[in-house]
Design a protein around this nucleic acid. Structure first.
Length: 428
DNA sequence: TTAGGGTTAG
């Protein structure tokens, strides 16, 4: 349906000299094309064991972790004992820290309960810092929650700032946002960075109203928001539905306070427009930036390209790409991935495939997002065989499929076939 | 050597 808005399909601009509707008779005219990706061309001879075992698929699916840094690296006992960064701890505190780090996590809370007298003698805030340095966010969390259950003066602003920092660094946003449900944050005066991290945690765990409420309380305390805090709040309103007016208000306030927009501000605002389909607002904001002498960076350009791409307005999306190149803002893999997605939404599989050639020409490696988008576009067009060709090709080229890739393929095959037949696509 | 932004599925 989006395609009907744009009856005049523009030719692909990146490589105007190379026709992309060449799949039917390719071999004689241009051998070089065989090196490039083209789903209609015969694939190179498959390896002798070209099956895709089901257990391998399940292995991939069950071992997917969004966060590759999990679990965090632990230090062994000696490294911890000798770490000069822990010199601020008393010998007593240091030995307690070592014990906590090596205590089994499931029973750590009861261990803390049984060590009350020992804990009362050490500076618990320092102990938390020690766990932060040791990258032990889970143990830091257990200690913090023990502390907050105990109540009392040891649950102070520095302790809260530490746990906020620890969880923020590990991207444990939903954990962080829940931890403070039971703690009256308004009773504490945290530093701007801790508040900013907390606002971000609320935004990332979808608790926008919590973020807005906290932001209000921060202002009531008389703290003037920093540029970063404003940027996080722009992100909050950008994810919350129907909040463009709030975004405009914040931007006005930033200007009044003499804060210069940076690349985070600009990309966040334009991405907000993309989520809500605010084409005119995005264009006006972007033009306003340039009129004031701001030089947009790649993230801002990519966000703008996505605004038009999502709206199905690919002529404008291509114009953004052209402007990037004219202004020496070198497109990256995300730019091209957005472009593939733009074509995919419009149902132009060949054009999406041709983007891979453009990427190769620029020395940019297609990644799992590129391939997944392309697989999805063939799937949506009912061209399952070509989608699976792309899937095979991506693996041959050493690009590891991720959970989105498999979801795309399973969704496609599930739609196509209601019986076990769908698995034969994989196993063939 | 801060606290924050952009892509794929469902």
């Amino acid at each position: 349906m989006e395609g009907t808005l744009f009856p005049n399909r523009p030719t692909f601009p990146i490589q105007t000299t190379k026709p992309h509707k060449k799949q039917q008779h390719s071999s004689s005219s241009n051998q070089q094309n065989n090196l490039k990706f083209n789903p209609s061309l015969p694939l190179p001879p498959p390896p002798s064991t070209n099956t895709f075992p089901l257990d391998s698929l399940l292995h991939h699916l069950s071992h997917h972790h969004k966060d590759p840094s999990f679990p965090p690296p632990n230090q062994d006992a000696h490294a911890l004992a000798d770490d000069p960064r822990l010199d601020f701890l008393t010998p007593n505190g240091r030995s307690l820290l070592t014990t906590i780090v090596h205590h089994p996590l499931p029973t750590l809370a009861s261990f803390l309960d049984s060590s009350k007298s020992q804990l009362s003698k050490v500076d618990v805030a320092s102990l938390l810092k020690g766990l932060e340095i040791s990258r032990e966010w889970e143990r830091a969390l257990v200690l913090f929650q023990w502390l907050s259950a105990e109540g009392g003066p040891k649950l102070d602003a520095p302790a809260i700032e530490t746990i906020v920092r620890v969880l923020g660094r590990e991207s444990q946003h939903s954990v962080a946002s829940k931890v403070f449900d039971a703690i009256p944050l308004e009773d504490y005066a945290l530093d701007t960075r801790a508040y900013t991290t907390l606002l971000h945690a609320y935004a990332r765990s979808g608790r926008y109203d919590k973020a807005v409420a906290l932001f209000g309380r921060i202002r009531e305390k008389g703290l003037s928001p920093s540029l970063v805090m404003y940027n996080v709040m722009l992100d909050v309103y950008g994810r919350k539905k129907q909040s463009w007016n709030e975004i405009v208000k914040l931007l006005d306030e930033m200007k009044r306070n003499g804060l210069d927009f940076d690349e985070f501000t600009c990309s966040t605002v334009i991405s907000a427009c993309g989520r809500e389909g605010l084409l005119e607002e995005a264009t006006e904001f972007f033009d306003g930036l340039k009129a004031r002498g701001y030089v947009p960076g790649i993230v801002t350009y990519n966000a703008l390209l996505q605004v038009y791409g999502k709206a199905g307005n690919y002529p404008e999306a291509l114009r953004v790409l052209k402007e990037m190149e004219e202004r020496n803002c070198v497109p990256d893999s995300i730019t091209y991935n957005e472009l593939v997605a733009t074509y995919a939404r419009a149902g132009f599989c060949e054009e999406g495939t041709a983007v891979l050639d453009a990427m190769a020409a620029k020395g940019i490696m297609p990644d799992s997002v590129t391939y997944t988008t392309l697989i999805g576009s063939y799937g949506k067009a009912g061209r399952e065989d070509e989608a699976l060709d792309v899937f095979r090709r991506m693996k041959e080229l050493g690009c590891v499929p991720n959970v989105c890739t498999y979801n795309t393929i399973l969704g496609m095959l599930g739609k196509k076939s209601r019986s076990g037949r769908c698995w034969t696509f994989f196993l063939r």
